[in-house]
Every structure is written in structure tokens, then in C-alpha cells.
Write a protein that binds this DNA or RNA. Structure first.
Lengths: 210, 210
DNA sequence: GTCTATAATCAGATAGAC
DNA sequence: GTCTATCTGATTATAGAC
């Protein structure tokens, strides 16, 4: 994919600030992602971010107001990106048996990785200190996902759902809670439950048996 | 306030340590619960705990090795207690339509309160720093709950579940993810979904329609 | 066992040179 | 804009008196 600003004109100094690309800012955000996701908000020091990003601490403070500002910028960015990747597609299409299995498969095997789990944990951990971040996640990721699935159910009345939105929550909520139980609470080790068993039972419940 | 040690008997030194009731220890734990649940692990200072508990800081260090020791003792205690209250009952009994509604109702309206939400958030937040705590929660709360429901499904083959354990996860996971979405991510405000709608749809899916 | 006072460390934020 | 060096406050943990 070609860069969009390959032929950037000389930017007049009057608008320089808002539009300054400054690779340093990127480096800071990249480094900060790693540190925050690994160590959590309190466990992250600005020194560590500076070291990881390869810049000095003061450079961070010239791009972001303070630690909170850096954190929110970071989390907003990740939330939006994840949303684009995960839910940016058009409306869902296909036969229920196939589509629902595809969706669950894609969620568990593609969307859920180390970074997603770390982001989810961090969002929950800091939801009280940063309620606006949590609400952003709620509006973009949770609501969009539910809406996408709900729309699909609306187009498939043969499934017989009286409340497609509520069923959409149940479907997606089962997947998310599975990730939380297995990954965050180490259910993988203590009380394993395979993905296939979860998906099979979900399909059994949602798709009317012949 | 009268001092508590006005008539302290001379305790025999041989058994004093392990069996000393020491109301102070209770006071510390009580105060620590409030502070940790409110402010999180990093946001909690030993000074704040001491002030809330009404003891000096050194008294805390005479009862607990350090901040981590206090935290783990606290969380273990709360996990066990919650488990006793929530899942200590005998096996579930009753007609599916009634029993499942009762269970969901009880979970959403009795078990889930401010303290439960705070505990869940804190467990998730610190699951990486304190993996043993997370595993304890997994083995006691999550697994026991799933087992309780799974046993019930085993005794009701008329429900037609091929994999009762997986369905148990779906049922309980839907409830837990509902709490996370509505309470922790402020879905209550941004994208509300009533408890009744969730419960009705859950019953529609699980109990075979006539 | 319990308290007051203190040591030692660390992190967020800033000052000033270039 | 970027860097090095520094200030300030807070926090964990301990020392020592009673």
C-alpha cells in the first residue's frame, strides 16, 4: 500500500504544529504501546517509555501533555485501529450455519492475540480512572460488534429470534467471556475448554436443529 | 474510643503467633478491602490503608509481610467468601424454565453489586502480576459455577445439550460479559440493554420452544 | 504489639543548553 | 525540537521508643 503523503508539499509554518508528522511521535507511540500493554498504567514509567522509544523524556513531554495524555492518545488509537480491522467490514452475509462459525472462528483465531488480550485487560483495569476511554470502547467496539451481528439476525428471520440485539450480545459475549476465562484467568491451565466445543454448542443453540 | 488492650491477658508465647485473633488484623483487612477495591493495587498506599483501618503503618507490617502479602491475603479471602455465598449451595433443582430464570435473576440482582464489580475489575487488572490469585479465582468461582450448572444440565437430558459443560459456559459467560459491558464499560449509559431482554433471550435459546 | 519518626528509592514533571 | 541534568513529592519499608 503506497503512503498517502509521499508528495507532501512544504508545509507553511503556520499550520506546522497540528500537521507535523515528526517520526518521533510515532516512535513514542510505538514504544509506549509496548510498555503500557506489558506493565499496565501504574507500572509504566516515562523513563521506560523514553528508553523503549529511543528518545529522551523531555521529547515525550513536548508531544504529549503528561502521562495521562500519552495514555489516552495511545488507547484511543488502538481502539480505533482494532475497530477498523475487526468491524470495518461490510454487513455480514451467508448462511447462518456457515457465517456464524466463520465469525466465531475469526474472532477466536485472528482477532484475539496477545495484544488484544493485553488491551482488554488494560481497558478494564483503567476503566474507572479513564471512564471516557471505556465509553469510547463501548461505543466503537462493543456496540458496533453487537449492531453488526444484530443486523445480520434481522435479515435472517428464519432463525426465529424475538430479540436479535439481545441474542447478538449472547453470541459475542460468550466469545469474549471465553477469552477472559481462558486467557486472563488462566483457565487454559486450570479448567480448559476447547474452542471447538464452545463453537459447536453455540451453533447448536442458535441455529435451529433440523 | 477506649483502647482495646486495657485488660490484655498474658498470652503464652508458644502458641501466640499462629492463633492470636488480634482484632487489629480484622481492622486492617476491612480497611484494606475498601481502599484496594476503590483505588486499585497501585493506587493504594500503605498510609491510606493504615488511616482507613485506624492503625499505624507499622502495625500492618507486623501482620503482613508487605503490600503484596496484604493484597493476596485480602483477595483470597474475598474470593473464598464470595464463592461460599454464591456457589456454596447444593445442586440446582427445579424445572429448567424456572430454575434458569431464578439463577440469572439471582446472579444479576443479588451477586452483582458494587463490590463484586470492583473485585472482578481488580482481579482482571492484576491477573498478570498475581497469576496465582487469578488461578484461584478460576478454580473456585469460574470452575465451580460452570460445574454446578453443568451438573444440572446433565440431570435434564430433555434440554438436548450435547455438551452440557460448554452450554454452562455460554449461559454464565453471557451473564458475566453482560456485567462487564454494562457496568465496567458503562454500557448502561452508552448502549443500554435491559436485564429482562437478556434473560428472556437466554431462556428462548436454552429451553426448547414448545 | 503498637506507635512516631525516618531512611531510601523512585517517578512525574521541569529548566536550561544546543 | 531535542537532549542532559535536576527538582519535588510520594511511597515502601524499617528503626527505635514504649
Amino acid at each position: 500500500m503506497p503512503k498517502t503523503r509521499s508528495s507532501k508539499p512544504a508545509s507553511p509554518s503556520t499550520v506546522a504544529e497540528a500537521d507535523n508528522p515528526s517520526q518521533k511521535r510515532e516512535a513514542i507511540l510505538e514504544g509506549a504501546i509496548q510498555v503500557f500493554l506489558n506493565a499496565g498504567y501504574a507500572g509504566t514509567s516515562m523513563d521506560k517509555v523514553a528508553a523503549t522509544a529511543g528518545v529522551s523524556k523531555q521529547t515525550i513531554y513536548s508531544h504529549f501533555q503528561d502521562k495521562e495524555g500519552l495514555f489516552t492518545a495511545l488507547m484511543e488509537r488502538m481502539t480505533i485501529r482494532r475497530f477498523q480491522i475487526a468491524l470495518g467490514s461490510d454487513s455480514l452475509q451467508g448462511e447462518p450455519k456457515v457465517l456464524l462459525r466463520q465469525f466465531a472462528d475469526a474472532f477466536l483465531n485472528k482477532i484475539v492475540d496477545q495484544q488484544y488480550v493485553a488491551l482488554l485487560r488494560l481497558m478494564i483495569a483503567e476503566s474507572e480512572r479513564f471512564p471516557e476511554l471505556a465509553k469510547l470502547y463501548s461505543r466503537t467496539v462493543i456496540q458496533k460488534g453487537r449492531q453488526l451481528m444484530s443486523d445480520y439476525f434481522h435479515h435472517h428471520p428464519e432463525l426465529g429470534f424475538r430479540d436479535p440485539e439481545a441474542v447478538a450480545h449472547i453470541f459475542i459475549g460468550s466469545l469474549v467471556s471465553y477469552v477472559i476465562a481462558q486467557e486472563i484467568f488462566y483457565g487454559k491451565e486450570t479448567t480448559p475448554l476447547s474452542r471447538d466445543r464452545l463453537i459447536e454448542s453455540l451453533l447448536d443453540l442458535l441455529v435451529i436443529k433440523p
